[in-house]
Nucleic acid binder design. Structure first.
Lengths: 204, 204
DNA sequence: TTGACTTGTCACCGCATGGTGACTAATGAT
DNA sequence: ATCATTAGTCACCATGCGGTGACAAGTCAA
């Protein structure tokens, strides 16, 4: 007789494997059961269906980078850097962290098409994450009259777009968005944008 | 007996209607024939299938804003504005033009997930468009040591993301990306980013 | 040994999809 | 009037999907 826990694990593993292999386009109960080498009825029995499975999967992995990873393990240090400097470096680290996570990129792409349990969990994680990050700098908002929220929204959106688009496109705006060289240029410009932008106002 | 040209028109119209109504998720021969009120076999007969139809559709519409629209009908004027000013305003107008085109937004979303005949046409249009725009300012590249291409890639990506994301999301980064008020903040920050960024170097 | 329960297998259902072949009915040229 | 062509209808196919009910086999308690 089989082992229930082991089967559940096989199914959970298969979610990540299938997403990484074929993307969310072909994602479904049948394909999932095939990937796991398991009968699909067990997905319904053990997880109550796809939504429940995605929920379980979402809670069992680290799709999103931690604040520590973004801050090179030293968030405190960033509180004392000039604002433009800090924002720029955080954004660059954020982009690097996402580039290393193909699974997260896939989920982010999925999010553009339709919401589901997995993308919802990702969105919640990100929301809480963003708020904690923002709170870290809330005391320094008076340093500038720029709209910090809108600026980070813009630059965060830029990173998201390039990350997602890079899954199946090499060139955007005459620029290689999949090579390290191309990203180097983007990172550099990201830093310059932030530095120059905040330089116009008082800096801490 | 029916009218061939009229039927072809009905089918072509249905492409836009269906995309606007249900997005590309449910896009297919059957749904398309239903929308057009026509038998699906005619799609194969008249267009050789979906790819051919998309090609025809793509060549029969103006998804992409013209350079004139982006430049308020006066591109020459932009050549004499300070570089940061010009880039910023062009980007803002670009965003506004896209916000007005739900169909284009849908195709842009499609493009992020998978390429097809329609997105290819859009990409080619945009590529040529970008090159002409870039050429307009090529003579002034010496004014700055910034990486103009990378910067416009970033800010263009930002706009694309927010445009696409706005289709089914209200809030991003604690910001309303679907209301006019939210976009006002984004536009303002976009302008400031460009102004401040280019201000550090010599400006024309 | 009996009987309840669990794990897993299998066959099946309804439905939608992309795609094709056979047909009807109108048109127009000879 | 005849006959080929054309526009459009319809039935059908294989395939894949999400989802369910019936059942075999193995486990454990009474």
């Amino acid at each position: 007789m089989g082992n229930k826990e082991q089967t559940q694990q096989k199914i959970l593993m298969a979610v990540g494997e299938l997403l990484a292999k074929d993307g969310f386009k072909k994602f479904g109960v049948n394909a999932l059961a095939r990937q796991a080498g398991v009968d699909k009825v067990l997905i319904y029995r053990y997880f109550g269906g796809l939504p429940g499975l995605l929920r379980s999967f979402g809670e069992s992995a680290d799709f999103w980078p931690t604040l520590d990873e973004i801050a090179n393990g030293n968030l405190q240090e960033f509180r004392h850097k000039p604002l433009g400097e800090a924002v720029g470096e955080l954004l660059v680290n954020f982009a690097r962290a996402l580039r290393k996570r193909p699974l997260t990129r896939e989920i982010m792409a999925w999010e553009m098409l339709e919401p589901n349990e997995l993308t919802t969990i990702l969105a919640e994680t990100r929301e809480e994450w963003a708020q904690r990050l923002f709170a870290t700098f809330s005391a320094r908002l008076t340093e500038t009259d720029l709209d910090l929220l809108a600026i980070t929204a813009l630059l965060g959106a830029a990173i998201n777009y390039l990350i997602i688009r890079g899954r199946n496109t090499q060139i955007f705006n005459l620029l290689e968005i999949n090579s390290d060289a191309g990203w180097k240029r983007l990172e550099e410009s990201l830093l310059q944008l932030c530095r120059n932008c905040f330089a116009g106002t008082a800096d801490g």
